[in-house]
Design a protein around this nucleic acid. Structure first.
Length: 408
DNA sequence: CAAATGATTGTTTGG
DNA sequence: CCAAACAATCATTTG
């Protein structure tokens, strides 16, 4: 199977490394440049075909672990014991082609893709194996010169990075400096380092989860195949391979993933808006409740029922709003959202908007934000509001009474 | 104020 | 939690 599909790629220049990339499943599309696609559906006009999974043979883009091209990374057999054939996956040594990540993966992929596109070619056993001499630990280090992937400080830097745990709540202290220094040790330029602290915003556990990026999706899909071919490959190695493949991916193909993430992002924004709305409503409810309680307390006090008891209520402490509510308010505050599209374009929009909310929010969420402050103004009628308020007050009043009874 | 850019965060899997 | 690499987001600076 694989052999048929896969295509071997050869880079003459590099002797050491062999990099055979199997065509990740038939390219969803031909490369934009080549018009050859005789393939039935060259362009997935739609980002994603509704169809669940297609047969392995069918050229589908999303690399399924099954179909996925067998990517073998073989290093020098001699040196390594681990990577060798025993992986369970056949490794092509002789046929292996050399490839360097840094150089131009794109070319490789494209060529591979093009090859695949041509049916005839495929017939031949095209085995894509990725062979990297670099994979060797030695090589990895050695490779440095070529790759020089930006790692001023090798391993140490990582630990240095503000580990989430360590940074826990030092936001203020933030040593923005520290962070910066790590990233760019050399540039200690006092001149240009406003050193914007950038406090890390603590994330809400409840906040909707951000959608994964296109690359992450690709990684998820591809990684398994790579691993399959190279069980011994480390995460870093796999990551590099995936990166090179990603790099080689055609725009259209990337678009497939991007559209996925885009959709996910849309959902995310909706969920986020809904979530924030719910927070608002909560805060509003809370403040309303507090107010109600206060008024009730006043009433009680005036009637000289049991003032002392009433005063002890926590809600009473702040005349205006409880700290929690304030925090909520802050969290909810509609912030402009920046999105960087493609190149450098930045789109600015308001995160939370009424339109959005009424638009696609799930019913349950909508229900939650029923008494929300945000929507309250538009949707709810005064009569409803007042009645609700009344009932709330009643309930609270009852609670207070009960409490006072209990305590007394 | 909007655009540009730097910095940080958050993904991926597996140990 | 970390690995490598990337994308997305955020925050600050700049024009």
């Amino acid at each position: 199977m694989f052999a048929a599909l896969s295509h071997t790629f050869h880079t003459p220049s590099l002797g050491d490394e062999e990099f055979e990339i199997p065509p990740i499943t038939p390219p969803p599309e031909m490369e934009s440049g080549l018009g050859l696609s005789e393939v039935d559906s060259p362009f997935p006009a739609m980002p994603e075909p509704p169809g669940p999974h297609r047969g392995p043979l069918i050229p589908q883009f999303p690399p399924q672990s099954l179909d996925l091209p067998s990517i073998t990374i073989s290093r020098n057999m001699m040196d390594q014991e681990g990577m060798t054939v025993n992986n369970g996956q056949p490794v092509n040594v002789g046929s292996g082609h050399l490839r360097q990540y840094p150089p131009n993966p794109a070319m490789v992929m494209k060529s591979i893709i093009s090859m695949n596109s041509t049916n005839g070619m495929i017939a031949r056993n095209q085995l894509t194996t990725i062979n990297q001499s670099q994979l060797n630990t030695q090589n990895l280090n050695m490779a440095g010169p070529n790759i020089t992937h930006t790692s001023p400080s090798p391993p140490a830097s990582k630990s240095a990075t503000p580990s989430p745990s360590s940074s826990i709540n030092e936001d203020d202290q933030d040593d923005g400096n520290r962070v910066i220094g790590e990233k760019r040790p050399a540039p200690i330029d006092p001149t240009k380092k406003p050193k914007t602290p950038k406090k890390k915003k603590k994330k809400d556990p409840n906040e909707p989860q951000k959608p994964v990026s296109a690359y992450a999706l690709f990684f998820r899909d591809t990684q398994a195949a790579i691993k399959g071919q190279n069980p011994n490959a480390t995460f870093g190695e796999v990551s590099k391979i995936v990166a090179s493949m990603w790099d080689g991916l055609g725009e259209e193909q990337k678009q497939v993933y991007k559209s996925k993430t885009e959709a996910a992002k849309k959902e995310y924004l909706k969920a986020l808006a809904a979530y924030r709305a719910s927070l608002v409503s909560k805060a509003a409810a809370e403040s309303a409740e507090a107010q109600t309680i206060r008024s009730v307390q006043q009433t009680l006090a005036s009637t000289s029922l049991s003032p002392g008891l009433v005063l002890s209520s926590p809600l009473n402490q702040h005349p205006s709003m409880s700290p929690a509510s304030q925090a909520l308010q802050r969290a909810i505050a509609p912030k402009p959202l920046q999105m960087r599209l493609g190149g450098n374009q930045i789109v600015t929009s308001v995160t939370v908007s009424h339109q959005n909310m009424s638009g696609g929010i799930p019913p349950q969420l909508l229900g939650q934000m029923g008494s929300g402050a945000v929507n309250r103004s538009d949707g709810m009628e005064d009569s409803v509001k007042s009645s609700r308020r009344t009932s709330e007050r009643l309930a609270i009043f009852q609670r207070v009474q009960t409490a006072s009874q209990t305590l007394s």
